[in-house]
Structure formats: structure tokens, C-alpha cells
Design a protein around this nucleic acid. Sequence first.
RNA 1: GGCUGCGUGGCAGAGUGGUUAUGCAGCGGACUGCAACUCCGUAAACGCCGGUUCGAUUCCGACCGCAGCCUCCA
Length: 464
Amino acid sequence: MLHIHNSMTKKKELFTPIEAGKVKLYVCGMTVYDLCHVGHARVMVIFDVVTHYLRANGYEVTYIRNITDIDDKIIARAHKNGENIKELTERFIAEMHHDADALGVLRPDKEPQVTESIVEIIRMIETLIDRGYAYTSKNGDIYYDVSAFESYGKLSGRNIDELRKNKFTTTLDQTKDDPLDFVLWKAAKPEEPAWNSPWIRGRPGWHIECSAMSTKSLGQRFDIHGGGQDLQFPHHENEIAQSEGAHGCQPVNYWMHNGFVRINNEKMSKSLGNSFTVREILKKYDPEIIRYFILNSRYRSPLNYSNQQLDQAKNALTRYYTALRDIEIAPNIDWKNDIYFGTRFKMAMDDDFNTALALSVMAEIRLELNKAQRNKTQARIIYLASLLRSAGKILGLLQQSAKNFLMGNIINNNKRTKIKTLIETRNIARKQRDWVKADQMRDELIEMGVVLEDTNKQTNWRNV
RNA sequence: GGCUGCGUGGCAGAGUGGUUAUGCAGCGGACUGCAACUCCGUAAACGCCGGUUCGAUUCCGACCGCAGCCUCCA
């Protein structure tokens, strides 16, 4: 029985979909003006696992992750680059897909873009005006009237009066009736992209697009809405105000917010200038290492980024793949049918997607697998290795060939040949009990970043 | 200032009112020509102070420290 921590109630709740057997999931995706950083990777990986797990439980999942392709920062970046906005956003959408693919993140079922949803956005704003939740300001912008929405603040635990106090001390926007009101539609400056509307020619505000796109893709009510913790306020709060204001019903049943990635105990973010792009990390680490690193802690906790952490993840994965090396997988073996490990894996995942605990079960499977290898119990070896691959599939781990993970860095054929030659020479020396020569060969390989493992049958090698 | 959340062994990270995961690293042993791999064993923790309790790391309260949101942000 799957339980999900609902940010709205701050409790773990039994998951019950609106429609039996189906799950509608919406996740706030990227604003595309730069490369993905680790924080983006975290959202993508987490909800990829959520989707995998729901599907493994037999749900038919519709997974929507939007792309914000028009906003102030995009305009500013395009201007700075001297680049066309469309070119810029298309470029970074492609880059995002590149990173997502590398990380083994499946594409969502749909990735709606704001610029392709203007009609729906305008329609929703009209509804909000009709229903008394929005007004036209003096300068022609359309604002949401927060005071009209009684339960404003319920998701983030804000008190409207407290918020007002803070707002008054900072900015006072003369065009708004209330400093808390937020813009739904705003006038575009001359060179900015703009669309015709019943009001001023302009473009949508920041929050309305998610309300419009989730409605467009999933309907007025859906099961799960996900995103980073920083979106809880004001973005998701405003989304609720918009959707509920327009439709008169609660839009989302379960809100899931993932914790931040931190670096040196500080939130990683572009504005702080302390972010690492996925691309940078991929230069040094296999993408699966990033995935393991992300899934080794619970999605709601903060995640500290450091090279030491990635190295630990790398060592752990090396041990998994070492255990899996040279074993044929039986594809019909499914973790769900395993009483001992499978049940505990499921219990972990059922507990609000406790991937860290699920990984500890996988570590136990690995131990049993290694024991089976020592005992040479062939059927058991195949079973456990298949079990490991099957469970790993939910987490998007252990899906590549062991050789690829362990030896993949060295793609240069000459180098491979040299490694092979050195190993052969060394093994001849070993037969002749010429240990000095044999050790020379091995040292030379270590210099090349290659570690040897002798077995009775053969000598295996892998990258350091 | 307001509102959240957090503080677990060397590092990372689960979890629990009593038997105290897991990973990486360490130590001892087995295996090995020596290593590596692997296995066996081992040590080590619950911020501080009170309270509740037969018993608290786990519940409650104060304190200290940290992070986040309140402005763009995954």
C-alpha cells in the first residue's frame, strides 16, 4: 500500500487515485535558458522513479512535465546572447533532453510548452475575471485578486496578513490593489514576444501557465503534483488559487516537494552562483553515479553535493557491477515475486518512495549474490543477479552491461589492445613464477588507471 | 521578524520507545606468489539540558546550531 507524504497536509497518506488504476502526474519542469544543474537532475530522477514505481504497481500513469519557454530570464538571456528567443529555448530544450537521456530519465508523456498554450492561458484568465478572481490594473495588466481566494496560503502555511507586512516593507507596486496580487497577463515591451488577447497585447505571468497546462493535459483534477521545494511558495500556492478559482474544485490530491541540493551546506542555485551543471559532472562520472547519489537519500531531505559523495557512489556501483559481471540474466524474474527481498523492497518504496532504504535491500541482494558465486550455485546466481537487475530497473540503476560500467571509460582500441597484451604477458610470467616481471606489468596497468582481478579462470580488469 | 524543516558512528544515510539498518572508508582474519575481487569477523552514533516512562536516539518542553521560504529559482 503506497503512502505519499502530502505537502498540503504534511502527513503521509495512503495513495488513492481519482480514477482506479490511473495516475495523473504533473511536475514543474525547467525554464529553458541554461544547462541543467544537479538540482534539475534531482527532480527529473526522482519523478522518473515515481513514475517507474507507479507503473510497476500496475497504474496507467500519465506523466506531464512542462517546459517554460517564455519569461523574463529567457528574454534577458536571449538579449545578452544576441540570440533569437525561439532559438535559445529550442537549444536548451535539446540540451535538457540530452542530460535527461544520459541520466536514464524517461521522457514524460507530454512536455507542454507555454508558448504553445497561450489559448488555454487566455481562456483561463477570462474565467478568472468572470468569476471575480482577477482584475485589470490601471496600466492594463491583469492581476489575480488574492483577497478573493479565501484559503490563500494553505499549501505553504502562510498567513495573508503576515505576507502583507513583509511585502509592504519591500516593494509597493502602485498598479496593484494589493501587494500580494500577482500578475496573470502583462504588457510586453516593444521588442518582447507578445500575443494578442482580449486585453493588452502581451504575455502570460509566471504562474498561470502551470494551471493552464495541467488543466489542458490532465483535466481540472489530477492526482499528484510535484516540484522543487522552492516552488511551494509562491508558485504552487498561486497555482492552487488560479485553478481552484477557475474551476471551483481542488486541483491536486497529493503535493510532492523534493528537497534542495546543497553545496557546502548552502542551497545550490544559479543565483548564488554555486551550481554544478550535469554536463560538467558527466565529464568525470558515469551518469548512473549521479543517479545513485541522488537516490541514496530520501527525496524530501536536503542532498549535499560533493566529489567525495560521488566517489562513494562510484565505489558502491563498482561493487554492484563486479558482482553482476559475466552473468546471464533471466528476464522472467521479477522482483515483485520475491518473498524475502522483493517484499522489503516494496515496503521501502511504498513508504513515500524511500529509495535509500530500497537501496539497502539491494545491497543485501548483492551480498547474497556474491556468496552464491563463491558457492558456485548457478541457479541461485542467475536468480539473484536477475533480481538485482529487476529491482534496479525501478530506480533506473544497474541497467547497463557490467563491462560497460567497469571498462567503459577506455574506448580507445589501442589502449585496450595494450591492456590485453600486458595482461597476457603478466599471466605468462605468473606461470613461470616470475613475480618481479608480473608485478611490473601490473604496476604499468595501474599507471594506466587499470586494476586487475585474478580469478581461477581468467584475469579481469576495470577502470580505477 | 514571520513560517517550514533539520541536527544519527570517519564520511554518507535509513530507522526505531527496549534487541540499535545499509553503503563508502577503517581494523582483524580467510582467499592470493603478493595484490585486487570476494567472504567472515570487528569497532564506532544518535546536538545540549530537563521532563514523561520500568526504559528515549526515538515522545514532550527549553536551549544551541544549521538550512530553506517570505524576491527569480528544481
